[in-house]
Design a protein around this nucleic acid. Structure first.
Length: 278
DNA sequence: TGCCAGGCCTTCC
DNA sequence: GGAAGGCATGGC
């Protein structure tokens, strides 16, 4: 069992705030999460993170990177609050929330599925696709399935995807899988591209608009200067600033949060989803 | 039942 | 370039 000393880390919020689709909450309040190449179980007790996995190779660095534990979020939150004190309540409700460092292919497909969909439905579709095509892993007497590789999805048709409740997004998934298989550098290229260029490139693909592209860049490429504006963020923006309309919201976010707009908006998403669903 | 969900596409002006 | 309507599916 690996132990990692952490501070300023809220495991619950980080896992459940809508950026991770493949997790299970266990009876002991730990989380079992399926990563790219392994399954981990994480539990936090005070300032220690206990990590177990079926694969211990580089486990600490994998976990630190996945939860973005090396970044100074206190500093980022100060910058956000310096720009707008009225977000005190929003930022305060997200103390210790980290931006996940996910995997480009899985993230891209997952967020194509996310369009006009609910978090619980997205989770189910991603799980079903993984079960159908991904590698099987045994961990703690249970069976898990990794998200499939592009090659494993190579011959899957749009009609096949319909079996996994993805609806009209079937053809978008098929297209993206083909793009990635035809150009093995396609997804890696975004690491070195500026945010605006990455957005333009991603939005050339079917089923990817500004919102989906922003989420992909935020959660898989750590590009924080994006604006993933969804229905919850709109509610908070209306509530906090009395601002409506996507264009106006974007303008406000850019003005106030600048390079950290993606994080500020994730905070609003988390805050809004909790506030308006209770 | 009807409305909504981490929206995007097509059509039409 | 912007507004309006359609879209699969599951949850509430």
């Amino acid at each position: 069992m690996l132990e990692i000393k952490v501070n300023d880390f809220n495991l619950d919020d980080t896992v459940t705030c809508g950026q991770i689709f493949r997790y299970t909450k266990e009876d002991d309040n730990s989380y079992t999460i399926i990563l790219k190449d392994r399954v981990i179980n994480v539990r936090k007790d005070n300032d220690i993170l206990y990590v177990d996995s079926n694969n211990s190779d580089d486990l600490e660095s994998v976990v630190v990177k996945y939860f973005d534990l090396d970044r100074d979020y206190k500093k980022i939150n100060e910058i956000i609050l310096n720009n707008d004190e009225s977000l005190d309540e929003v930022v305060g409700s997200c103390t210790g929330l980290k931006m996940i460092n996910s995997y480009p292919f899985e993230t891209t497909i997952s967020y194509i599925i996310s369009a006009n969909n609910s978090v619980s439905s997205i989770k189910k579709s991603v799980d079903k696709i993984s079960e159908a095509y991904g590698d099987k892993i045994e961990f703690r007497n249970k069976t898990y399935y990794l998200f499939p590789t592009p090659n494993q999805l190579k011959n899957v048709s749009a009609a096949d995807y319909r079996n996994y409740s993805v609806g009209f997004r079937d053809k978008y998934i098929e297209n993206m899988v083909k793009v990635v298989n035809d150009d093995c550098l396609y997804l890696d290229s975004f690491f070195d591209l500026a945010t605006t260029n990455s957005l333009d490139e991603l939005m050339k693909q079917q089923g990817i608009g500004p919102k989906v592209a922003s989420c992909i860049l935020l959660f898989a490429y750590q590009k924080f200067d994006v604006f993933p504006i969804d229905t919850w963020v709109k509610k908070v923006m209306k509530d906090k600033y009395n601002i409506e309309g996507e264009k106006n919201i974007r303008k406000q976010a850019q003005k106030v949060f600048g390079d950290y707009s993606g994080i500020a908006i994730q905070y609003m998403f988390h805050y809004g989803r909790n506030k308006f669903t209770k």
